[in-house]
Design a protein around this nucleic acid. Structure first.
Length: 329
DNA sequence: AATCCGGGGAT
DNA sequence: ATCCCAGGATT
């Protein structure tokens, strides 16, 4: 038996015993697989489950999603982050209704041409929903492959190309769905970033990093982008259980979401609270003021009942601010 | 090739 | 405090 066949059979035998088989999106429905894959981009499984169930309850199929108001789609995304994913889901649903008979195309290139779908998401849709032999290369697969084949310290583009090559070379033609799911499960349950459980790993006899006791050196660390500090000044006005909100512009952080009205410059008086909110590329200091005299000068604001907040797409920072200031204000 | 885009879990 | 998560689009 050659190395690739060993890799496949040992991985699939492990999956049959220990793999995940009951996640809510593990169904033969490309629509549901697609929604889950978008939500799972840079987002952990545990957090996605509740968002996924709420989303498909409201938009159970492609046509209903395509007909939806984008604001309602975004509202169901509140707190999940990377809100362009919600916009792209909506656009893709409309394209599928118009051009693909209201279903996702069963074609790698056509899938990748849709907004928000790259090679990994396209491969996941084809393999997980239709059991077609297309590879994926998410964070889990990268970690497993970089350790098993000891792929490290090279130029990023070469690193990525090499891992794609390995992912495609090793995929099972007989059980591609289970193979991809197995690699992801192995990466998230056994071949974890720190202190991998190599003694439980079905690939440990093949793993080059394990053989030389260097699993901690793989995968190579990502180069982190510098976080820039930004200070915002915002007004918190709550009256009769309603809060004054403003819809943000279509570009930048929290594009199109509802947040507190902001103003330029600072007023040292009337400062209610200063909140630190960290994003992947920004460190926000949000100074929250009460200054009802300014309210009349703020344009494009709407009073939103606090009990209706979930109907208005908003970042988690808004909830953080309301909770932090609530008792004092 | 580097940056933008959120939020939070694990350590 | 650091790393990174079922990444993709844009610059």
């Amino acid at each position: 038996m050659n190395q690739i066949m060993k890799f496949q059979s040992q991985l699939l035998n492990w999956y049959d015993l220990h793999g995940r088989k009951n996640l809510p999106w593990q169904v033969d429905d490309s629509y549901l697989v697609w929604i889950s894959e978008i939500m799972l981009q840079q987002t952990q499984v545990l957090k996605v489950i509740d968002y996924f169930n709420a989303f498909i309850s409201e938009f159970p199929n492609m046509k209903l999603l395509a007909q939806a108001d984008i604001n309602d789609v975004l509202a169901l995304w509140s707190g999940l982050g990377y809100y362009n994913r919600a916009r792209n889901i909506h656009k893709t649903a409309q394209i599928c209704v118009q051009e693909h008979n209201a279903i996702l195309p069963l074609d790698l290139k056509k899938l990748m041409a849709l907004p928000g779908i790259g090679q990994t998401t396209a491969g996941a849709i084809l393999s997980l929903a239709s059991n077609l032999p297309f590879a994926i290369l998410d964070g889990n697969v990268k970690r497993v492959m970089s350790r098993v084949y000891r792929v490290g310290e090279i130029k990023l583009s070469e690193y990525t190309n090499k891992l794609w090559q390995l992912a495609e070379q090793n995929i099972s033609k007989q059980r591609p769905k289970n193979y991809n799911q197995a690699l992801m499960d192995l990466g998230s349950l056994v071949c974890v970033r720190s202190k991998p459980r190599c003694h439980e790993c079905p690939l440990n006899t093949l793993c080059q990093a394990y053989q030389v006791n260097e699993t901690e050196l793989y995968p190579p660390k990502k180069t982190k982008t510098k976080q820039i500090a930004v200070t915002l000044h915002a007004l918190l006005v709550i009256k009769d259980e309603k809060i004054l909100l403003r819809k943000r512009g279509e570009t930048g952080i929290w594009a199109g979401l509802w947040f507190l009205p902001e103003f330029i410059g600072k007023k040292s008086s009337n400062l209610l609270h200063s909140i630190k909110h960290v994003l992947s590329h920004r460190i926000l200091t949000i100074n929250v003021y009460k200054n009802k005299e300014l309210v009349d000068k703020i344009q494009d604001c709407h009073w939103v009942a606090l009990s209706d907040l979930k109907k208005f797409a908003h970042p988690s920072a808004l909830v953080k601010i309301i909770n932090a200031v609530d008792l004092k204000y």
